[in-house]
Design a binder for these strands. Sequence first.
DNA 1: TACTCACAG
DNA 2: GGCTGTGAGTA
Length: 634
Amino acid sequence: MSKFTWRDLLQLNDKEKAWNSKLSCIGHIDMNAFFAQVDQVRYGLSTTDPVVSVQWSSIIAVSYEARKYGISRMDTLESARTKCASLVPVHTATFKKGNRNWISTPLGEFPTPFDHKVSLDPYRREGRKVLQILQKNCDLVQKASVDEAFLDLGRLIFNLLINEKTNNLLNDEQLSSLNELREIYNSGDNSMDNFLPNIPSFSHSIFPPIGNIIKQNDNDELIYEDWDDLVIALGSILTNMIRNTIYKETKFFTSCGVSSTKSLSKIASDFKKPDTQTIIFNKFINKFLDNGSFELTDFWTLGGNKGKEVMDILECPKFDKQSIKYIREKWPELIFLQTEMKERYTDLTIFQKFTFPLKDCDAMSLKIYQLVRGNWKEPVNSKPLVKSMMANKNMRGDSCKDFADCMSWLQVFAGELELRIHDLQEETKKLLIPKTISVSIRSDNRSSIHSKSGPFVIGNASITRDEFFQLILDSAKPLIKELDLVYKDTVYPLTGLSLGLSNFEIIGKGSTIIDMFKKPKKVRTEEFEEIKLEPVEEKQNNKKRKTFFDNNESKICNRCGEKFNDERQLLEHKDYHYALDLSIGINGIKEHKDLVNMDNLDLMTRRRLNEKGNDESKSNTKNKTITEFFTPKK
DNA sequence: TACTCACAG
DNA sequence: GGCTGTGAGTA
């Protein structure tokens, strides 16, 4: 007889409950050396090229090929080159000061930080591509960062076990082995508290797991004893398929962890890289935690001061990587851990200030108690598309020495944010309306950061892209002006400047114009008067303008008629026209054709010419075509 | 709401 | 070490 009930199994079929089921199965997928992989694919390089992604002179990602030469993220570009003569460094895309669009940096070129700003957009886009593949294949996905995500595999597994229609995923032997379970389920004799039948005999050979299996001893035969084993094994089969799909569609390698909880899966995905998934069956959790040479501080959220403090409070042995085992064995019951933790906290607090208050001790103890047993369960939450967006640059020298410099960098930042919001809207067919804007400045003089934020108000739904850009800039101006007034004597030259939009409201395309103007909590009548909605009829007859929130724009170059899949490509293409215009007369290139389809030359030439053309490059986002986003509401 | 800080990749 | 991002505390 199984120790699991039908309730446990049925919970898998419920998005709200699956994470907390005794049979829960969570996957964590992580892209290996992500930026380097993106650059390798983007630049058509081979997987055997030792690629590193570079930002100024530091390395921000090291491909696994480059790691073979002992190169790490700590290396500078210089030191990496001495380790590997055939190194292929790829610099991130950049905005040139005064430019509204980023461009890819040609191989072998290294822009200077004094008049460029890094763009991470290429990485974000590829990250989103992968996220979309995940979402297509799994109904509950949580993006954890640009290159990692959690999957709640509950429904997928439930369907494999119970549903007939499983897309040929299971073979006849596997199907028939599940007959007993399905019969009970279909007979309706599956009262919640009834125990599940035994797992099919030999199910470990009928459903072999895929990946790096953690076992008590490496040579042990793996035997499934109950449904949780089978569930985790099915999870590994699913994540393997999903990862194969990612590879097929993007050529990206991933690593993955499969287990019953998010925190375990996260550690597991990191355990063996690249291109490997690690499977933690429930019965081997302790073995994994104790012998994987993990510390308490390896758990998510305990990597900083908080983790160190807990280690101190609990007087964990240092340096022998046994803190997890130590805590688990020393406090076999929660109540012991909780009392002792509070006692020691109070004793120590005389000498030491902690990052968490005494009242949180019980909660913290509970979390630690569960974590060291692999029992700490958290839901997989699909996160909103975006919560905030920031453009930031660390300044050096006199890059930003007065108010005027601030404004010209803010122009770059505003351009970047407008571009990112616009691209994201295009991609998702959603409206993204930020409600607050903030700027911050940093300087070494006062070694501190000052920031100022305020409401961001879009007064008009048919705002164009250029107007939206201008609005960001205009909204940022008084904020930075105020910071300038208060701190001007001490902060310049700045060591950092940033501009952020946050509090995004995300609106589906079906929404009406009314949604644009969420009533502020406190409405003063004058303000409300001012925000007048354009009468719908009038709008239709209006002179046509392409609005910022328009998704259906044409993507045809008005110079040569070439068609593009998305706006981004069109912009880059126009960038190219601009460069080409300059080039006539510089190096005698006359024909558009000369450069078409010669991507590298195109890029290089554009780049070189852009430099010569200096800052005169105008925004290419003039809006000529039409169609309103909003359709009149019946 | 405004600002700061911790944590993470 | 640079560039992002989220969440929580404080007032």
